[in-house]
Amino acid sequence: MYLTEPRLTDIVKKQFLYKLNAYTGVFSSLLIMQLIGLFFGFNTGGGSSGSESLTINWRSLSGDMAVIFTLFWAFSTGILITTLAYRNDAFSFVSTRLSHHVSSFLFLLVMSCIAGITAPLASSVIKLISLFQHNAVFIETSGLFASPVDFFIRIATAVIYTILFAGFGYVIGSLIQLSKLVIPFLVIGLFILPLFNISGTGFIEYMVIFFGFETSLLIFLVKVLITVLVLFAISVAITNKTEVRK
């Protein structure tokens, strides 16, 4: 038996293709989450107003829910993919921790792109169904033909946000793999402490300002890329000693 001298890129490629097959559950969960998002998109808001002789009922529909649920999905998938079961699946064949991380990350990246593209498209289903209703419909966002640039900017925004959420999920998942104690610390650090206005604890608020208030798509992209690379490096560093198939 001769020894093979594998290249990292080669193994990463193989693992990536393997994960596309083995982790297809991620596709189904994306589908389910976007369908839930669509369902809630039909119930965003509405009301009625009027006088004795005139009553006006209105419903507001928006694509927000499909996007929000896609972001939920991205975050959860990031966590899920770091769990022991997924890791053991990966380590049943040739793998090192590094190749596992890189291929998982590529997988998340591709999934985020797919999710980011389908999320704004999903809202077109809401739009379509609302057009087939008998009621008058206000379409308040111009579509692909009317303003193609905005249409693609919207898709790009969705893709980049999905990648960001997946990246946060991945690093939090990696931390949890390191120790389950991380969970209470995260909950307290991220959600409880900011309630008491202790300075330096408003991490989420800071993130919202850092990403959400950015007005240039290019700078936003750079911010997210750097953030995600840092998150990835943290994930690799903290789990490089993790034991598998214990």
Binding site: S62, V67, P120, F138, T141, S216, F220
Partner: peptide, 17 residues
């Protein structure tokens, strides 16, 4: 009595449009 529907794409994705 009058009913109408108002539709808008995701507000979240309007950040850079």
């Amino acid at each position: 009595e009058l009913t109408f529907t108002s539709y808008q794409d995701s507000l979240l994705l309007g950040q850079f449009t």
